[in-house]
């Protein structure tokens, strides 16, 4: 069997993952004519792991670590972001997005925290893409498999990237990978946060731990166990339903925009070429 999905996450092989992912980054970056990457480094574990992997793939000197704090939030995040770049010996730059975000919301003072969080994520995207032009680099995304599957992401915001090196790695596996790569323990053990508002944590907002979510996703996605069977296997029915619904409702984030099929050959319908066409 090619992949034994019944093997528990503890068997996840971080050395093999590192080997596979660094080669992926190197291959997919260099064959489109680039040598460098920019990574938005938040001080969290996902972007730390991606920065470490990118540095392994392209060299630390070619891994531009960009901290994009919104000033009022989590002052330690900025220091952690810098610590990651420092640990790698990678170029580091801080761009405070507060003036841009605040200028925008001066027009909409009533905006709730969802709108503010989305605009922050998209502002970071704007800065990263702009700096990618400056550094002649590709934007290396930090989305992991868990958040991409449940849609715990901002469309065209943190999801926007040329590559998703950990897009097939669950959050619980990211932690194993982080330890293998030597990401500072402080960053691994702090509670995951999207940094969308003060005091926000992923697991608080989702109402479930990543261990619980990943265990359900592995059953549904990798093992293709029907969701109605999972309660018999010891899973909480309500949580299974919630994870399934998050996955279903966020499918639009994982696809390109829809277009009406009215001609003979139509983009996204029956005009089929890989991105690596001719590469």
């Amino acid at each position: 069997m090619v992949q034994d999905p019944d093997t528990p996450v503890e068997k996840f092989n971080p050395a093999l993952a590192t080997e596979s992912i660094t080669r992926f980054i190197r291959d997919e970056v260099t064959k489109v004519g680039f040598t460098r990457g920019v990574v938005g480094v938040s001080g969290g574990i996902d972007s730390a792991v991606v920065a470490f992997l990118t540095a392994r793939a392209l060299g630390a000197e070619n891994t531009y670590c960009i901290s994009l704090p919104y000033k009022k939030h989590d002052p330690s995040a900025r220091a952690d972001a810098e610590a990651i770049a420092h640990a790698l010996g990678a170029p580091f730059q801080t761009v405070d997005i507060a003036p841009m975000v605040d200028a925008y919301f001066a027009h909409f003072p009533e905006a709730d925290h969802i709108r503010r969080g989305n605009v922050m994520a998209r502002m970071r995207m704007i800065v990263l893409y702009d700096l990618s032009r400056v550094h002649r680099a590709l934007v290396i995304g930090t989305s992991n498999k868990t958040e991409a599957l449940i849609g715990y992401t901002t469309l065209w915001g943190d999801m926007a990237a040329a590559l998703w090196p950990i897009g097939d790695i669950y959050k619980t596996e990211v932690r194993i990978l982080a330890r293998f790569l030597g990401v500072p323990e402080r960053i691994i053990s702090k509670p995951p946060t999207a940094g969308l508002w003060e005091g926000q944590t992923d697991e608080g907002e989702l109402g479930m731990s990543y261990e619980e979510i990943d265990a359900i996703l592995v059953e549904l996605v990798d093992k293709r166990i029907p969701k109605d069977v999972l309660p018999e296997r010891g899973f909480d029915r309500e949580k299974v339903e919630r994870v399934y619904e998050m996955m279903r409702a966020s499918q639009f984030k994982r696809r390109m925009p829809l277009l009406p099929k009215v001609s003979t050959r139509s983009i996204n319908h029956d005009f089929k070429y890989k991105r690596d066409w001719g590469r």
């Binding site: 069997m1 090619v2 992949q3 034994d4 093997t7 068997k11 996840f12 092989n13 093999l16 993952a17 596979s20 596996e173």
Partner: peptide
């Protein structure tokens, strides 16, 4: 295509 990261020594597909 190589895949499968749950073996101690090699990709699941390589083992297969």
């Amino acid at each position: 295509p190589g895949r499968g990261l749950r073996r101690p020594d090699q990709l699941g597909s390589a083992y297969a």
